[in-house]
Design a protein around this nucleic acid. Structure first.
Lengths: 208, 208
DNA sequence: AAAAACAAATGACATTTGTCATATTCTCTT
DNA sequence: AAGAGAATATGACAAATGTCATTTGTTTTT
């Protein structure tokens, strides 16, 4: 069974390779260090399983997975991460990840790989514990419980309509600069990068 | 590793015992036939893993699991069932089941057991596939009748993921300038003004 | 009335974005 | 081998975007 390992921490990568290759039926054809390498190495080596970190310098694991699954929908991708973050878990599940393990489960990774190889899906306990929460509390942050004030919410909605700052300003009788300021604080509060991500956030989480 | 097997179908029980005991490190101390027996046998044998059917005559697997977990919260219970039923999956997850496999995955049950033994959670693909559905169905975008070429569509999707041009470029192995060019033509074809409107368009019209 | 709190605005700045004209590279075909 | 067409890249540009420090009014609070 060929396992491609991708982690931006060299030590982790090498440790994994060592652990895995101690198994008679596992080979690690290459070590990648970020999402971009993952894509290239995957294409090159066609591994049975891709074992990849989520947070990495450069392209992250989720984006790389998206790309890889686009060309090879049967790709078996197993995420390895230091912590369990709701956002990531959901995205990973949506993507069709075969697993999501914590790095602290290091020693138990080999049976997990065999299970994945056999077509199963493997998730660490901390991850599974979250799933019922996610299921019962459909993460539909009602506008009311967003940490945003009236103006910020209004602006968010207009951004989600596709208006630019000037149009929003006219529409709300504010100056363009003020709109920018509100938008800026909104992005910070929601931990987003730009208006496009805000619009996406709106359609995904609020006006679902 | 001691595995207690509980299934009301005798044939299934014996088959499982045979398969499992072919492994050098697995023993099956007993076979149960319903939830009541499961509880008694679990107490008696203190197995490492309880492998149990969900639908059974008499007490069903989920109720038995509830009882067992009440006295031993660390019990590792793996459900084996003929079909994947949303109701059951959710309840099993809530209970803290370590896994939920389909009987058709029979051959792949051994690595799954090892993974569970190592503290992981294992779910069959059919089961995992349902989770995003339950969370909120993401449809496969119908992109066929758009006047866009392959590259333009790919870029559109990534824009709709919230990536900026540089990230898209890395992801597709193009230069940032090229990405901008494709994006520009996409916007013109769809008669949109900027990437935000494109993302909105995507969520409204394509992934609606 | 002074102080504090708030909403709105400004100006400066670095980045990103979208457009366009023009190259370069690659792949076929003839 | 030459040339036609594509896919991709480049460079230049204006506009839009996001961030930040600071300022100006306006309303509350004390």
């Amino acid at each position: 069974m060929k396992v491609l390992v991708v982690d931006d921490d060299r030590v982790v990568g090498i440790s994994l390779k060592t652990i895995l290759e101690a198994e008679p039926d596992i080979t690690v054809p290459a070590l990648g260090r970020d999402g971009t390498e993952a894509i290239a190495l995957y294409k090159e080596h066609q591994p049975d399983i891709l074992l990849m970190d989520i947070r990495m310098e450069g392209m992250n694991g989720l984006d790389a997975a998206t790309t890889i699954l686009a060309t090879d929908p049967s790709a078996k991708i197993l995420f390895l991460t230091t912590f369990s973050d709701d956002e990531y878990i959901i995205r990973a599940l949506r993507l069709g990840a075969k697993g999501y393990l914590l790095k602290q489960d290091f020693e138990h990774i080999v049976p997990a790989l065999h299970a994945v190889y056999g077509g199963q899906n493997v998730f660490g306990s901390e991850v599974v514990k979250k799933i019922p929460d996610i299921l019962s509390a459909p993460k539909e942050p009602d506008v009311s419980e967003l940490p945003l004030n009236e103006k910020e919410i209004e602006i968010m909605k207009l951004v989600a309509e596709g208006l630019n700052n000037k149009e929003i300003a006219q529409s709300l009788f504010l100056s363009e600069g003020t709109v920018r300021n509100y938008l800026s604080s909104t992005l910070e509060k929601l931990n987003l990068r730009d208006r496009t991500q805000l619009a996406i956030y709106y359609y995904k989480h609020i006006r679902a």
